[in-house]
């Protein structure tokens, strides 16, 4: 073709466009950062030096777009260095329904992420305040909740109730309940939710942080039930997927629909916190809910 002769040379050694990477239109673009020196922002399309992005907690320095984080990165950004102790990492999915290609998908996700499953749980400290944590990884089958994710999160809540520790949960689940485990994964919603009652009974603080994307059965269970619910800016959060809604109502959705700012406006979340302020905000909330502090206040009032 003649016009090929005039094709401009790329100015940078950069990431190819989604279609060139073999991502079909209509499919959600993989937003994990590829290797390379330069990265193009998913939002403003500007070119960012990889190290600048890393230094900025993977937030675009130009437009404030919050890139999705791997669970490991999130843990490193949020918790005190050296304080993290992982638990129940040896839980592995099986294929309860004999669902086609499920084992292969899990195996692929394990290889790609280096994780056994889509959530990391354990105990850690934020500015020296101990807590139980659970952090989901979108890269593991879209952060969907199957038996293992449900089990690990339930164990985390139970551990927190038993040891009187607050819980910090970070969710990232695009599909919600994991389809490949069918009804078993739907029941993980009940399993995780009921474990929250134990925290309720004992007056233990539960902080839920919603990140891009938190949808479906993850959102419609433990994720939306925090004593305080925080979202990162611009995260897609909701019950039904945007495409399902569009097909149902046969209308185009308004801009900003199901984004954090929309949820804040409609009273569904408490706060939107930028990534750079997240650690400080979490520490503040944990400090505010510390047991001994409540005790101290009561004493001082009595005095």
């Amino acid at each position: 073709m003649l016009k090929d002769l005039f094709k401009p040379k790329p100015k940078y050694v950069t990431i190819r466009r989604p279609e060139e990477r073999g991502i079909q239109p209509g499919q959600p673009e993989k937003k994990e950062l590829p290797d390379g020196l330069w990265v193009k922002c998913n939002n403003c399309r500007q070119i960012i030096y990889h190290k600048d992005l890393e230094a900025n907690l993977k937030v675009c320095p130009k437009c404030n777009y919050h890139f999705r984080l791997r669970a490991g990165e999130r843990i490193a950004y949020l918790f005190d260095a050296g304080s993290v102790q992982e638990s129940n990492s040896g839980l592995i999915s099986k294929n309860p329904l004999g669902f086609p290609e499920y084992e292969e998908k899990v195996e692929k996700a394990r290889k790609r992420t280096g994780l056994n499953e889509g959530v990391i749980t354990g105990v850690a400290k934020v500015k020296n305040i101990p807590c139980v944590f659970s952090v989901m990884d979108f890269g593991f089958m879209g952060g969907s909740m199957g038996s293992v994710v449900g089990e690990k999160i339930s164990r985390a809540f139970e551990y927190a109730a038993e040891h009187n520790l607050p819980v910090v949960s970070v969710t990232a689940g695009g599909g919600g309940a994991r389809m490949q485990e069918g009804i078993i994964s739907l029941m993980q919603m009940a399993k995780t939710c009921q474990a929250l009652n134990r925290l309720q009974e004992k007056g233990i603080f539960y902080l839920s942080i919603l990140t891009d994307p938190t949808m479906g059965g993850v959102f419609a269970s433990f994720a939306s039930l925090g004593d305080v619910v925080i979202a990162e800016p611009g995260a897609l959060i909701g019950f039904a997927g945007p495409r399902v809604i569009e097909q149902t109502i046969r209308q185009t959705l308004p801009p900003g629909f199901q984004r954090s700012e929309f949820l804040l406006e409609h009273g569904i979340i408490d706060l939107i916190v930028e990534r750079k302020n997240l650690r400080e905000t979490v520490a503040r909330l944990l400090r505010f809910h510390q047991r001994d502090q409540v005790g101290k206040e009561e004493v001082s009032k009595d005095a």
Binding site: A220, F239, A240, I245, P254
Partner: peptide
Amino acid sequence: PGIEAEERGQGE
């Protein structure tokens, strides 16, 4: 699955 349902917190 609708706009108003999301506005009023279907998930919650």
